[in-house]
Nucleic acid binder design. Structure first.
Length: 248
DNA sequence: TAGGCCATCTGGTCCT
DNA sequence: AGGACCAGATGGCCTA
């Protein structure tokens, strides 16, 4: 289930802030409440660890069946492998397993740390981000921050030159694109709050206009009952960008 | 029930 | 030699 193909296919589901291609099937932090399906320290990962330790104790773990299981036939390599296994002291194997478990737990702890600093709904009613979703969201968040920083630098430059501020807005709109070569989607998405805050600085009228565009059914393509409340999705094409410029 | 996600075990490879 | 890292295999849990 984790072949490179399926991974890249899954990765394609995520746009800026993890929006899928076909209509906002699922957005980060917008999953429906599921009760107790988010793992806790006791019932989740650590609980699984307990399972594993039990397996270790009885040496009935799944991996014992690996490798030669695909063909069902014992090959020369398998014989050699079995020979190695016999030569490997059991205590050594157990310590290697424990070390690997510890390593994976450290990795998961780091992922938890990452989840805690990226923007999505940290709520008990929202499912924990998967590993792949965490990494993709973090990447996109970094890219978005870089864009914002760039825009701010440009704005400061304009201010220093004594030019009018609204000049910066069209470029801000134009910069709202997925990183070139990474995404191939016809839509972009970003937090509505971000838009409203940003655009309100320049013109409340423009902000209203943008809000109108973003909430118009003709402009939306979510077509879903689960349309996001906190995210605005806009077509990401030239004509729309031109349309936006007309507003500002 | 299929599919997604995860933890674990394992053997191979690389690095110190 | 021993540890870190990696990827494949497998089974469990959960959700749609």
């Amino acid at each position: 289930s984790c072949s490179p193909d399926s991974l890249s296919e899954r990765a394609g589901l995520f746009d800026l802030f993890l929006v899928d291609k076909d209509g906002g099937r699922e957005l980060v932090g917008m999953t429906e409440p599921t009760g107790e399906d988010f793992p806790t320290e006791e019932s989740g990962a650590r609980g699984s660890e307990h399972r594993g330790l039990e397996q270790t104790g009885g040496f009935a773990g799944a991996a014992v069946r690996s490798r030669s299981g695909s063909s069902g036939e014992q090959t020369a390599e398998d014989d050699e492998s079995d020979d190695k296994k016999c030569k490997e002291p059991r205590s050594l194997r157990l310590s290697i397993n424990a070390r690997e478990r510890r390593r994976m737990h450290d990795l998961n702890d780091a992922l938890d740390d990452l989840r805690s600093v990226i923007p999505y709904a940290h709520s008990p009613s929202v499912r924990k981000l998967s590993k792949i979703a965490t990494l993709l969201l973090a990447k996109n968040y970094i890219l978005m921050q870089a864009q914002a920083l760039d825009e701010m630098r440009r704005l400061v430059a304009y201010l220093n030159q004594g030019q009018s501020v609204p000049v910066a807005l069209p470029s801000a709109v134009a910069s709202l694109q997925p990183p070139l070569g990474v995404y191939d989607h016809d839509e972009i998405a970003f937090p509505a709050q971000h838009i409203k805050r940003t655009h309100a600085r320049w013109s409340t009228g423009s902000a209203r206009a943008l809000h109108k565009i973003s909430t118009s059914p003709a402009r939306w393509s979510t077509g879903s009952a689960r349309a996001p409340h906190e995210f605005v999705r806009l077509p990401n094409d030239r004509s729309f960008q031109t349309c936006l410029r007309d507003f500002f």
